[in-house]
Amino acid sequence: MFEARLVQGSLLKKVQEALKDIVQEASWDCTSSGLSLQAMDGSHVSLVQLTLRADGFEKYRCDRNLAMGINMGSMSKILKCAGNDDVITLKAEDTSDRLELMFESPKGEKISNYEMKLMDLDCEQLGIPDQEYSCSIKMPSHEFARICRDLSQIGECVVITCTKDGVQFSAKGDMGSGTVKMSQNLGAEKEDDQVTIEMTEPVQLTFAIKYLNMFTKATSLSGSVCLSMSNDVPLVVEYKVEDMGHIKYFLAPKIED
């Protein structure tokens, strides 16, 4: 038996919104330590990894490890039926091919039950190495979203350059070019407004902006975003999911021939 009850159900709605444009189908892995998911986009350029720890749920039970094959479009449709203030409970029997979703209004006067068919998925699991990065940049998530949106009007690629002075995002295209530079700003009143840069070595990498724009669907989950980079390896874009976990997006760089 698997059962997970989340009082702040809006978190699950936001997580789903943050995943659905990148991944069409995914295996949600349930273990006693929590829920996790790892999936590549259709063109195998990016990978998303979600962790929601068991202790972040008000109730969590998982007697046997389960891999629930989920059509993300269906999951989105059903989670849209939940109100933002609803408590969401997920339930599945060990051998069932269905996931039950229950939405309770805050005062308990409305209870909705949905059942979603699960799929048999044969998902390729990649081994993500634990590694140190040359640069880690933390910045307001809305600023990152704004930069990606603005520069995607200029060109298809963004060059991210991180030095001790700051981080620069540049794009160029047929009509011209654009550059946005963010400098470290430790004086901001709110922690989420701070820009912090930790660097052991300067980094410059080129990425397809359309993927970064998809990652920014997670903006509503967290006030800040962390970008981790080293030369010639995938970028990591991480959003915290409150104090219960994270969504990490990995994006392969573009490399000169």
Partner: peptide, 14 residues
């Protein structure tokens, strides 16, 4: 121009 690399080429299967 720069070529897109696959994410799989960085992370080996397990």
């Amino acid at each position: 121009s720069a070529q897109q690399v696959s994410i799989r080429s960085f992370f080996t299967g397990r």
